[in-house]
Deep mutational scan, measured.
Amino acid sequence: TETRTFDSEEEAKKAQKEAEKQGRTVTITRRDDRWEVRFD
């Protein structure tokens, strides 16, 4: 599991799309003013 933090939802969604192309499961969580993206 890898976790990355982004400043914008746009960036988080971009990372999510990339990871899903690779067949990974992605979870996006809102953390205050940041977006946390978890790759499984």
Rank of each mutant, 00 (worst) to 15 (best):
E18K: 08
R34D: 07
A12F: 02
D32F: 03
F6L: 04
T25R: 12
T3R: 07
E18Y: 04
D32P: 03
T1H: 14
V37N: 01
D33W: 00
A19N: 05
D33I: 02
E36D: 06
I28C: 05
R30F: 08
T29S: 10
E20W: 05
R34V: 10
K13W: 06
E36H: 04
D7W: 10
A15N: 04
D33L: 02
A12Q: 01
W35R: 00
A12R: 00
S8E: 06
K13M: 14
T29F: 00
E36M: 03
D33A: 03
S8L: 04
V26W: 00
S8Q: 05
E2H: 13
E20P: 01
E36R: 00
V26T: 09
F6N: 01
R31L: 14
A15P: 00
E18H: 08
Q22C: 13
A19K: 03
T27E: 09
W35Q: 01
F39C: 05
E20Y: 04
K14Y: 07
Q16M: 15
R4V: 15
R24G: 07
E18N: 09
R34H: 15
K21Q: 14
R38H: 14
V26H: 00
Q16I: 13
D33K: 04
T29G: 06
K21S: 14
E18D: 11
R30G: 07
E10W: 09
K21E: 13
S8V: 04
G23A: 04
R30D: 04
T5D: 09
E2K: 11
R4F: 10
R24L: 15
F39R: 02
T1E: 12
T3L: 14
K17H: 12
E2M: 07
A15S: 06
R31W: 06
F6S: 02
V26M: 00
E10L: 07
K13D: 06
V37F: 00
F6T: 03
Q22L: 13
K13F: 10
R4H: 14
D33S: 05
D40G: 11
Q22A: 14
T1F: 15
D32S: 05
W35A: 01
E10C: 13
F6G: 01
R30K: 15
T1M: 13
E9I: 08
A12E: 00
E11Y: 02
W35K: 00
E20A: 11
T27H: 07
R24Y: 08
F39S: 09
T3P: 09
Q16L: 13
Q16Y: 09
T29Y: 00
K13E: 10
F6Y: 13
E10G: 06
A15Y: 14
K13S: 08
K14T: 12
K13C: 12
E2G: 10
A19Y: 13
T27K: 08
E10F: 08
R34A: 12
T1G: 11
E36I: 07
I28A: 02
G23M: 04
V37R: 00
K17D: 12
D33E: 09
E10A: 09
E10T: 04
D7N: 06
K13L: 15
K21P: 03
D33H: 06
S8T: 15
I28N: 01
K14I: 13
S8P: 01
R31N: 13
S8R: 04
A19W: 10
D7L: 08
D32N: 12
D32E: 12
R38D: 08
E11S: 06
E11A: 09
E18M: 10
V26Q: 00
F39L: 11
E18C: 10
W35D: 02
E11K: 06
K14D: 12
R38V: 13
E36W: 02
D40H: 10
D40M: 09
F39D: 09
G23N: 06
R34I: 12
S8Y: 04
R34P: 01
A19D: 04
V26G: 11
T3C: 12
D33N: 10
E2A: 11
A12H: 00
G23W: 01
E9K: 02
R31T: 12
D33M: 03
T3V: 14
E10I: 08
F6K: 02
E2N: 12
D7S: 05
T5F: 15
T5V: 15
Q22G: 09
R31K: 15
T27Q: 09
T3K: 09
K21Y: 07
T25H: 15
A19E: 08
E18T: 08
D32L: 06
A19H: 06
W35G: 01
G23P: 01
R34N: 09
E11D: 13
D32T: 05
R24M: 15
F39N: 05
S8H: 06
A12P: 00
W35E: 02
R4Y: 08
D7M: 05
D33Y: 00
Q16E: 09
V37E: 02
T29A: 06
K14V: 12
A15H: 10
D40K: 05
D40E: 15
V26I: 06
T27W: 00
I28P: 01
E18P: 01
T5A: 09
E11F: 02
D7A: 07
E2L: 07
E20T: 08
I28H: 00
D32R: 03
E20G: 06
V37A: 05
V37Q: 01
K14A: 15
I28M: 00
T3E: 08
T5K: 07
I28E: 02
V26R: 00
Q22R: 10
E20V: 09
K13H: 10
K17I: 14
S8M: 03
T29P: 01
A15D: 03
K17V: 14
R38E: 12
E10R: 04
